[in-house]
Design a binder for these strands. Structure first.
Lengths: 334, 334
DNA sequence: CTGTTAGCGCATTCAT
DNA sequence: ATGAATGCGCTAACAG
């Protein structure tokens, strides 16, 4: 059986629908007695007013909603993205609906739902791509969609060149005198990591090694470090394809009495909040710009469904040297 | 004039509304010619399909939305809260819409809107209270509302005892041997800071000082430190009513060559992410529990509007000693 | 105080 | 391929 409506309530309470509507809306023009009766009927039937109907009948304006699918909890990277998204969207009087997505499967589930429900005016994909087939679903529905931190061919996006990012990692390490380099990446299931690995391999010294880890967090950083040190004891430069890993590596190194950057240099990726305070050298990603670009694009698309989407943007990555790497001459005795 | 409907489009394009509906939904049973005409009409009039009407007509189920009002960007405290909120809500198949709120005025604006639009099934207030009058608006609308990190009398909430938190700050500093204590708080406009100040003053040594800052960030921490050092040079223990301030203070202290904790001890509040890595002693707030409790409560209330809200919860604060404070005997020479 | 009625904007048969 | 009619669940006059 489907959800009860005010007609069901009215019938059960022996009143008219207007009365039901009145108690729902807290009108005081209802006798205490009938109010109780209606409330009881609602409780009995587990009544919940239909949102869409209320809005439609009340004639309230449509506040556009954009839903953002994001692997929200993996790293603080998304905190900054989120911030920019929210600010830009709210300035345009739109709502931000956050959907936490852990894997492709979950993403697809939500995408299906979004298409079926048509419950949003736009969607922002964070660090994930979609199939061409799905892309065309959005196309025919005229439902705007953009991506951030993802180099997809099918939808408007803002991204960085992660292959170049990988190169930057190794180059900086080399400039700092490292000759035995290691790279730690997250799952190769993610394109960003594959790209960074590729770039790294292109320019790294012979004999360099790459390590993969499924999850990206501080603990895993320490664990991978242990393995890395065992298999590759001569390492003198560790690049991490994520700041969180770098933090773990740094901690592990210090526990083992290895000096940073004298014995081993450490380099992160993202430039998440607090990395400056921690003094971790890293490759800065334009997180706020990601969020802002995506929000602005989707806003334009929503406001004018026939507008041509702004061309995809490729933003710059910047290497930020701090205390965990040392350019020649910067550290005494090196 | 109000927003154009499919009737307007139909009239302008010289077709029936069914046809308009077809092109909106990407049906292929429309001739190319009429499709173009309709699309042009839509573009000309800036047509945007009405959400509520689509859902109502399509009979899609009501996916409950809960909107969270939060001072989202002030600190990473809210990132963790957000995480828990989102996880719990999504497990219950509800959407989380995030609304960034900077001040009371903005909060009221959104609250008014929420009430007028009835656009959500529940609302979560983060670190903010509402007037009794407004509370009764929610009451009569039967719109569930809960609060987190706020000790309000009028709505179900989860919170901590910030007065006790303030005491913990001073007590720990005292235990660590500090006799000239300072407290840095955010704006007294926020109750949490007033409470922490009150607790601190209750137990702090005579001659202790309290400093207020409007905004809470790292830079401000450094700035306030400067002022503090100038006015209160004999200080040997600085408590901050927020980790972010503590980070700034710590940086400032190190720049000035003051040793921590030997010369001056530093204590934060919140236990935000990365504080463990930074080794900052702090008072741990149960951020995830805040989020989970609020989400679970609101879910219950939404699922059964006639349920009695779960009783408000007062969670424990925990002092976490790390490297910026030192219990007697923990630091050589102290 | 309460019931009747007429839309809200759109998707959807059912005709044509 | 396209149009007319019906109803989604509810609110808001308008009567009584």
């Amino acid at each position: 059986m489907s959800a009860p409506t005010i007609y069901d309530i009215a019938a059960r309470a022996g009143v008219g629908i207007a009365t039901v509507s009145r108690v729902i809306n807290g009108s005081r023009r209802v006798s205490d007695h009938t109010r109780k009766a209606v409330q009881k009927a609602m409780a009995d039937l587990g009544f919940r007013p239909n949102h869409a109907a209320r809005r439609l009948a009340a004639g309230v304006p449509n506040r556009p909603r954009v839903v953002a699918l994001m692997p929200f909890f993996t790293t603080a990277f998304y905190f900054t993205v989120c911030k920019a998204l929210s600010e830009t969207l709210s300035a345009a009087d739109m709502d931000l609906v956050l959907v936490d997505v852990r894997d492709q499967q979950e993403a697809d589930r939500h995408l299906d739902r979004l298409i079926a429900e048509r419950s949003s005016e736009g969607v922002v994909l964070c660090s994930m791509d979609i199939s061409d087939e799905r892309r065309s679903q959005f196309e025919t529905l005229n439902l705007p969609i953009v991506a951030l931190d993802c180099n997809t061919k099918t939808i408007p996006h803002v991204a960085v060149d992660n292959v170049e990012g990988g190169r930057m990692l190794s180059r900086h390490l080399s400039e700092c005198g490292s000759t035995h380099q290691a790279l730690i990446i997250g799952t190769r299931g993610a394109e960003v990591f594959r790209d960074r690995e590729r770039g790294f391999r292109e320019v790294c010294p012979a004999g360099s090694r790459v390590f993969e880890t499924e999850t990206v967090d501080i603990e895993r950083g320490e664990e991978v470090l242990e393995q890395l040190l065992a298999e590759f004891p001569e390492v003198d430069g560790i690049a991490c394809a994520g700041d969180t890993l770098a933090v773990g590596v740094l901690q592990g190194l210090r526990k083992r009495g290895r000096r940073v950057p004298e014995d081993v240099q450490v380099l992160g990726f993202d430039d998440q909040p607090m990395m400056d305070v921690l003094g971790i050298s890293t490759v800065h990603q334009p997180m706020s710009e990601f969020g802002r670009w995506a929000a602005e694009s989707i806003i334009e698309l929503i406001k004018d469904p026939n507008a041509t989407p702004r061309p995809s943007a490729l933003l710059d990555l910047t290497l930020i040297p701090r205390q965990t790497t040392a350019l020649p001459g910067k550290v005494p005795g090196r």
